[in-house]
Design a protein around this nucleic acid. Structure first.
Length: 424
RNA sequence: GGAGGGAUGGCUGAGCGGUCGAAAGCACUGGUCUUGAAAACCAGCAAGGGUUAACACUCUUCCAGGGUUCGAAUCCCUGUCCCUCCGCCA
């Protein structure tokens, strides 16, 4: 959620920024709601004050043993008028609140303009594309023997699921372990284990609700709960409605979890292979930091994600998302795209986002500012480090030997029992 | 699943239907003292919102949502969560 004070102060400036994101802010509507809000609020508070005064007087009179009947009579229909004013005010507040909730975060000044991913801006490339003396196969062709089993998955669950057999299952686990260990031991993150089912408040806090309900898997039952679309949700929400001490910052968590996405709007996209699944594994980094340090933290976080690809010696490029491609809650996002020889293109394996205080405001995640000794909103950031399934695809496609085997990247060997190759 | 107990400020923890936004302690901030620190003492210290140039005034909030009342942290109902005991069970 945006800071309503900033919005009030200069709605035009906000509208201009939001336009970069392709969002049209109806300034007139906002001002209209705001003006009405002011009137109704003053009216309501005035009546409330009147009632408070009278009730207090009754209390004092009673304490002195005086007759309170005339005072009570004086209250008259005040309660009724107050209720009516309250109702009007609350209705308007709900409307204003709903209006505010639907406004995405404003993009940072450095975010390029543009509407689709074609307008994203490449900022760096790393690694040399592998040269093969054969035609590289994609991960589906490579695993035709059945180690990547979409048929079994379709039978037991449906489309967009996968069963991994034997060495592939192990490779995925090895990647996960390697990523976690790297972030914990080299990048200073604290590992957390979290629930994979969360309530609506948590999804609201990070911005998936109310707007993106269709992308979530809702659990049937009386209480409104959902499967997590990313560990970002439970991990960030650890700090919802809390005030942390400044010396606890920065908070850096890494968390491995499965992610569940209904992919509601992605019919027909990436139907082949395990690029786009309803369930996938991801290692997620989450940081909560002081506002002054957040851009530095953003660089570091992106670096941490890139380090995994470098260690795996997988060629990749980093791109800054343009306004139109930027997510609802983010002020800036850098995607890491790994080279997939089988597809002859770069594909996203990580998305590192800076949310500024947007999520923190929704979550009321704060720290005590040592300068003022007052609570202040934190800045939140997160990034995949990395999407494990897609990273595994990249390993398969980049390390294929043309002979039905795949070399194991050096950094993974300790996690693969020392094997230098896996059979598919 | 059965039976009880609980939810109050950053934390612990009092709180008769009426100056209760809430005792006390801890923590924190400032001061005195000290070469410096600690201790001791004194003082301050909840959050969010509105009107205002500012001073100031005011509203809301004691888990959440309803209700009773002139007035609710306090009484009633519903829900959520936590704790204890019994049962069951990875």
């Amino acid at each position: 959620m945006l800071d309503i004070k900033i919005l009030r102060a200069d709605p035009q400036a906000c509208a201009k920024l939001l336009a970069v994101k392709g969002f049209t802010l109806d300034v007139d509507r906002f001002l209209e709601l705001e003006n009405l809000r002011r009137v109704l609020q003053q009216e309501t508070e005035h009546l409330q004050n009147e009632r408070n005064q009278k009730s207090k007087a009754i209390g004092q009179a009673k304490a002195k043993g005086e007759d309170i009947a005339p005072l009570v009579a004086e209250v008259g229909d005040l309660g009724e008028r107050l209720d009516q004013a309250k109702e009007r005010f609350n209705m308007l507040q709900d409307e204003l609140q709903g209006y505010l909730q639907a406004i995405p975060n404003t993009p940072d000044k450095s975010v390029p303009e543009g509407s689709t991913e074609d307008d994203n801006q490449e900022i760096r490339r790393w690694g040399n594309l592998p040269a093969f003396n054969f035609t590289p196969r994609d991960h589906v062709e490579l695993t035709e023997g059945g180690s990547m089993d979409f048929e079994a998955a379709a039978k037991i669950s449906g489309s967009r699921y996968v069963v991994l057999h034997g060495s592939l299952a192990r490779l995925q686990r090895a990647l996960t372990q390697f990523m976690l260990d790297t972030h914990v031991h080299k990048h200073g993150y604290q590992e957390v284990y979290v629930p994979y089912i969360v309530n609506a408040d948590s999804l609201y806090g990070t911005g998936q609700l109310p707007k993106f309900a269709d992308d979530q898997f809702r659990i049937a039952g009386e209480t409104e709960t959902y499967l997590i679309p990313t560990a970002e949700v439970p991990v960030t929400n650890i700090y919802r409605d809390s005030i942390v001490a400044a010396d606890e910052l920065p908070i850096k968590h890494v968390c491995h979890s499965p992610c569940f996405r209904s992919e509601a709007g992605a019919h027909g996209r990436d139907t082949r292979g395990m690029i786009r699944q309803h369930q996938f594994e991801k290692v997620e980094m989450v940081q909560l930091v002081q506002p002054e340090q957040s851009w530095q933290a953003f660089e570091e976080l992106t670096d941490h994600a890139e380090n995994i690809l470098k260690a795996l010696e997988l060629p990749f490029r980093s791109v800054v998302l343009c306004g139109g491609d930027l997510g609802f809650s983010a002020t800036k996002t850098i995607d890491l795209e790994v080279w997939l020889p089988g597809q002859d293109q770069y594909r996203e394996v990580s998305s590192c986002s800076h949310f500024a205080d947007f999520q923190a405001r929704r979550m009321q995640a704060r720290y005590r500012d040592p300068q003022t000794n007052k609570p202040a909103l934190l800045h939140t950031l997160n990034g995949s480090g990395l999407a494990v399934g897609r990273t595994m695809i990249a390993v398969l496609e980049n390390y294929q030997d043309g002979d039905g085997k795949v070399a194991v990247p050096d950094c993974l060997k300790p996690y693969m029992g020392g094997s230098s190759h896996i059979e598919l």
